[in-house]
Amino acid sequence: MILELNSINTYYDRSHVLQGVSLSIEAGEVVGLLGRNGAGKTTTLRSVTGLTPPRSGTVSFEGTQIQGKPAYRIASMGVGLVPSGRRVFGDLTVRQNLVLAAKAARKSETAWDIDRVVAAFPKLAMLMDRRAGVLSGGEAQMVKLGRALLGNPKLLLLDEPSEGLAPTIVEEVGRQLHELKNLGMSMLISEQNMGFALSIIDRGYVLEKGRIRLEATAVDLRSSDEARHLLGV
Rank of each mutant, 00 (worst) to 15 (best):
L33A: 12
T42C: 10
E208I: 04
R131T: 14
L5F: 04
R228M: 06
E62N: 08
S24G: 09
L33K: 15
G38Y: 03
R211N: 06
L198D: 05
M1D: 10
G151L: 12
E171T: 11
R73Q: 14
L135V: 02
V170L: 12
K123Y: 09
T10K: 08
S199W: 03
G78V: 00
K144S: 09
I169P: 06
G68T: 04
L155Q: 02
D129H: 09
L150G: 01
L18P: 12
R106H: 09
G35L: 06
M128S: 02
I66F: 08
S162R: 09
R73N: 07
G210L: 02
N182M: 13
M128W: 04
L156G: 07
Q96Y: 01
L3Q: 12
F89L: 07
S162A: 14
G68L: 07
L149Q: 07
M185I: 04
A102P: 02
G20F: 01
M77I: 02
V21H: 07
N193P: 07
K181H: 02
L156M: 08
I169L: 08
V173T: 15
I25F: 08
P122T: 10
D225W: 05
N182F: 04
P122Q: 10
A111M: 13
I2E: 01
A102S: 14
L188N: 05
T42W: 15
I66S: 13
L188C: 03
R86G: 03
I8G: 11
I74S: 07
A101D: 04
